[in-house]
Write a protein that binds this DNA or RNA. Structure first.
Length: 419
DNA sequence: TCTGGGGTCCTAGGACCC
DNA sequence: TCTGGGGTCCTAGGACCC
């Protein structure tokens, strides 16, 4: 762990050739856990994980927790068995989002060519920033210094000629490190690594590769493309073969917009009552609708996801004749899709609602109302109440106001959906 | 205390149109 | 009456990522 001797070039003594290494990958260290520890200094040096619910998994683990073998995506039960004195903190998405915004602002001071991948990592293309800010390695060091001094957080930065090598480099120098992979050293850097480090090679893809005897990136690079095509399908094979040869034509895409917005939730206790499921769909529809409206968008495709007690998962989507941003419409479609499953005495572990197929509101040809959908007892009067509810929630929190009147049994609401 | 929640991308099959 | 081929849109599921 840390900057050990096998890390080829820490920046402090980097005097090599970073020419053409214009891609940076910035990755925050144990991000959620670090944000929590920052505001609770008494937790520093202790094993901490973020990830809350009864049936949850670890979302982030401090490096002290990792010493016990705890990793993200591990079930909370397993994590607690590995370290009984583990401190478990519930996630605070707002706190991570605002810390993330502060990090991204530092990155955008260097160049507008920033592509966030998630709250805690981003690619930068600094090709145009060198005259102003110096060589890529110096820019990376500067970013690390600012993040540390201004935000009291640490990050690791990979510097390389391509996106995926930069990403591998940041992973190889974690935590709190910096690694430059000069253009001339890309292949010698890549070839000894296990294939599973390549982006897109998970457990399922590794299996056929291992059957072919492919274990390292070098093995992959030296396997004929046709053999890979038969094992993986054309698209995956060509992509991975190119990566194994250090080729990655992808450029940094700033201004990427989301293609879908979804909310789902695993219940501590499986839902069995029809009303409970509808209430949950309504809550999720409200969440998704709010986030669609927040962006000033409208959506044409609405979907649900249902996971049963046995973990079997089904999805249903419907593309509408027009666009909507109304919680009532999203909820209406979600309940119809749910009814269409024709379930008999289901035990529902997780329910989810999703919107996709977006347009900017006002630029869409027509907005749907529930009238158009044949539900004429509910109408766009409710759509007009969405902005009021959004404003109240923004000011007073998620519990402030809801859609109790949409429910079949409004008297029984218990999740803050009351009037 | 088995298996979160937010996403992206790919595949395969069917409908439909020309 | 045994029937092609291409293109697009839509849906369901699954792999993968953080």
């Amino acid at each position: 762990m840390g900057r050990s001797a096998d890390v080829p070039r820490a920046i402090e003594d980097f005097d090599g050739d970073d020419a053409g290494c214009s891609l940076l990958h910035v990755d925050m260290d144990a991000f959620f856990a670090s944000v929590e520890i920052r505001r609770r200094p008494e937790l520093r040096g202790t094993p901490v994980v973020v990830g809350g619910s009864l049936r949850g998994v670890v979302a982030a683990a401090s490096y002290e927790a990792r010493r016990y073998g705890i990793r993200s995506a591990m079930s909370m039960g397993q994590a607690l068995r590995l370290c009984p004195r583990l401190i478990v903190l519930p996630p605070d998405r707002d706190a991570y989002a605002s810390a993330s915004a502060a990090v991204m602002a530092i990155l955008r001071d260097v160049t507008p060519r920033v592509e966030p991948l998630s709250l805690d990592e981003a690619f930068l293309d600094v090709a145009g920033a060198e005259r102003l800010h110096g060589r890529p390695a110096a820019i990376a060091a500067g970013i690390r210094a600012r993040v540390s001094e201004e935000l009291a957080l640490t990050c690791s930065v990979g510097v390389a000629p391509t996106k995926f090598v930069a990403k591998l480099a940041s992973a190889r120098c974690k935590p709190d490190g910096l690694l430059v992979v000069p253009a001339a050293e890309v292949l010698s850097f890549l070839r000894p690594l296990p294939v599973t480090v390549l982006w897109g090679v998970g457990a399922r893809t590794a299996e056929p590769l291992h059957r072919l005897g492919v274990r390292t990136v070098a093995d992959l690079a030296d396997t004929p493309l046709d053999t890979l095509r038969r094992a993986l399908g054309a698209a995956g094979a060509e992509h991975l073969h190119a990566l194994a040869h250090g080729l990655d034509p992808r450029t940094v895409q700033s201004g990427e917009v989301e293609k879908s917005i979804s909310a789902d939730h695993t219940n501590d206790v499986d839902l069995t009552a029809e009303d409970d499921v509808r209430r949950e769909l309504l809550r999720l529809a409200g969440e998704v609708g709010r986030r669609v409206r927040e962006r000033g968008w409208v959506a044409r495709t609405i979907g649900i996801k249902i996971r049963f007690a046995d973990f079997r998962t089904v999805t249903r989507v419907r593309t509408l004749p027009g666009w909507t941003d109304s919680t009532a419409t999203i909820y209406q479609i979600a309940t119809e899709l749910y009814a269409g499953l024709g379930l008999d005495r289901p035990r529902i572990r997780l329910a989810g609602v999703k919107c996709e197929n977006f347009r900017v509101a006002g630029q869409a040809p027509e907005q749907l109302t529930l009238d158009t959908l044949g539900a004429n007892h509910l109408d766009d009067q409710r759509a007009r109440t969405d902005p009021v509810i959004d404003a109240a929630r923004a000011r007073f929190g998620a519990q402030a106001m809801g859609y109790g009147s949409l429910l079949p049994t409004p008297g029984q609401t218990d999740r803050g959906e009351g009037p």
